[in-house]
Simulated scan of single mutants.
Amino acid sequence: MAPAESKTLTARPLTREAFAPFGDVLDIGGDPPKPMNGDRALRYHALAEAQVSGSDARVIVSIAVSKPVSGLVEIAMVERHPLGSQVFMPLDDGGLLVVVCPDEGGRPGRPEAFIAIWGQGVNYRANVWHGVLAPIERQQSYLIVDRDGPGVNLEEHVFEAPWFVRVS
């Protein structure tokens, strides 16, 4: 079944300016790096700030391996994490479909879609509606920095009718 035209999104390039309402773009194209380790490495410092709230909350680092998407991608649901931010930084070469929605009275509004290129990751701010991991065309691994601890830190929303994004 072909998607309704009003429910089809066009993904645009991921830029710091376009993504600013939802979080941070992690890449090395911003401020100049700082030398470290006796000038053997360059540090791209403070690309994002992890947010956590709640009693006994902590920042954790994880790795996820995700199945790829291609062609016309169905966006049936989005999620958000009210108690903390969430970083996804690719560990492999490849693109990532990034879907976010503005909040409209506690529900996700019209989705926006971005294509992250090699070397870009994202930091979703706390309480930002976003899609699930969607590497483009091949399986990829991601470094995740997010919150762990007590409290309900996951809300999911299933759209009445799915949205579609063409990625290739």
Rank of each mutant, 00 (worst) to 15 (best):
P3D: 06
A4C: 02
K7T: 00
T8K: 10
A11T: 02
L14K: 00
T15V: 12
T15K: 07
R16Y: 02
R16E: 13
A18G: 07
A18E: 10
F22W: 09
D24Q: 13
I28H: 08
G29A: 14
G30R: 09
D31Y: 04
P33Y: 11
K34V: 13
K34I: 11
D39R: 14
L42G: 09
H45P: 00
A46P: 03
A46H: 15
E49G: 13
A50R: 00
S53C: 14
S62I: 01
A64V: 12
G71Y: 14
V73G: 03
E79V: 03
E79M: 06
R80Q: 14
G84M: 08
Q86N: 07
P90M: 04
L91F: 02
D92W: 08
D93P: 03
D93S: 12
L97R: 00
V98G: 00
C101R: 04
D103A: 10
E104V: 14
E104F: 04
G105Y: 08
G109L: 08
A116M: 04
I117Y: 01
W118D: 14
W118H: 09
W118F: 02
G119E: 05
V122M: 04
A134M: 15
E137R: 15
E137W: 01
Q140R: 14
Y142P: 02
D146H: 10
D146W: 02
D146A: 09
R147K: 13
D148R: 15
D148I: 04
G149A: 07
E156D: 12
F159D: 00
E160N: 13
E160T: 12
P162G: 00
P162F: 10
R166T: 14
